[in-house]
Design a protein around this nucleic acid. Structure first.
Length: 143
DNA sequence: GCCAACGTTGGC
DNA sequence: GCCAACGTTGGC
């Protein structure tokens, strides 16, 4: 059973362009219990939207989980977790927060309901809808 | 265990 | 720069 997620990054700190260049990236630095719980629920092969917070405020790409939760090396106490994500594809037409807020079917997404959460699940229905909005096809996300 | 004070995230 | 919505800290 495939799960879908959304992860946030401030492009000033780590942008989609850098993700593309690095290809595989350890998703470190998460210091929130709910976000940690979500990281630990991720399975290899799960897909996640890559969202630019603060600057852009739009879904710009899709990544795949390629290494399940392990201790975050940037945490001295090793009590926080991280996963590895791999670049899958860019979103041809980035989906903006403004767009999402304007669509009645998307009012329940955590991006809106819990605006401070940085790692969140996305339902399959919302995933499909957001892919359509972004111009993503099934072929784009098949390896 | 409560809660006031403080810090952070992130949209506007 | 402001502030709403959290999360954390520390005194009691």
């Amino acid at each position: 059973m495939m799960n879908y997620w959304l992860i946030k990054s401030e492009p000033d700190a780590f942008s989609w362009q850098e993700q593309i260049q690095n290809n595989i990236e350890p998703w470190t630095g998460i210091r929130n219990h709910q976000a940690k719980k979500n990281l630990q629920s991720m399975k290899n092969g799960d897909l996640a939207f890559f969202y630019h917070s603060n600057v852009g405020k739009e879904i710009v790409g899709i990544v795949r989980i390629v290494k399940e939760a392990y201790p975050d090396p940037t945490d001295p106490d090793q009590k926080w977790s991280c996963v590895d994500v791999q670049t899958v594809c860019s979103v041809p037409t980035p989906v903006t927060l403004k767009q999402i807020k304007a669509i009645p079917e998307l009012q329940e997404v955590s991006l809106i309901k819990q605006s401070r959460l940085s790692v969140m699940p996305i339902t399959p229905e919302h995933w499909k809808l957001l892919c359509n909005l972004g111009g993503i096809t099934q072929a784009d996300i098949k390896k």
